[in-house]
Amino acid sequence: MSVLKVQGLHASYRKNKVLHDVSFEVEQGSLTSIVGPNGAGKSTLLKVMLELHPKLSGDVSFFGSTLSQTKTRVGYVPQRGSVDWDFPTNALDVVMMGLYGRVGWLKWPNKSHKEKAMASLAQMGMADFADRQISQLSGGQQQRVFLARALVQDADLYFMDEPLAGVDAATERAIMTTLKNLKMSGKTVMVVHHDLQTVEDYFDHVLLLNRTVVAHGKTEDAFTKDNVYRAYGGSLRFMKEA
């Protein structure tokens, strides 16, 4: 069954067209990397699908339904740099935010919410840092907190924007273990990814994007040299030299 179906999606930032006729379907239990050069519209694609950025045209359906009807089943991990890490709050509190949609209006999070959040932190190896102010965490630890927040949402479909960008090796391993566990338990994960070297090791599916879908499918079929060159154009050579 396809958990996500995108058809003819177009979107722009101001006057620049960022996404052009993007169409693809994602199967349940897949772990997909979204790969493409800078400005290919990877983050925009996530935001448009989640209705955080307006689309010009096209259709997105989740579990055969609309986003508003399936919101609790969809989890989102924004780029780490998108929030202010000097915000006066601690790691546990940030993870609890993943539950706010479920706590309900005019209610305060209770003990069971707190326990769930602690369990997620522990799962990411961050239990000892629950009371730590978030600016006192390293980049990798901050990313783990974000992942813990996604886990606590207990969604069926996750979108993650560059969770592996700028993290240390231990965090990268912890995150990949988590993603694989999510996949094992039948969840579907789409990850914006920037490191072409690790695509084959980490992901079973790949979506090569450059404003439109260049290739999409199982990693061994879609992640070919030809397709990667087509997605990156001339910029790939420079990237590898750098």
């Binding site: 955080l52 989102y76 935010m97 706010y100 949609g101």
Partner: peptide, 18 residues
């Protein structure tokens, strides 16, 4: 909690329906 989450991470807040 709504003030807190929309101040810290408006994208997450919107994605969970706030």
């Amino acid at each position: 909690k709504e003030w807190k989450i929309t101040s810290f991470d408006p994208a997450l807040a919107a994605s969970i329906g706030i």
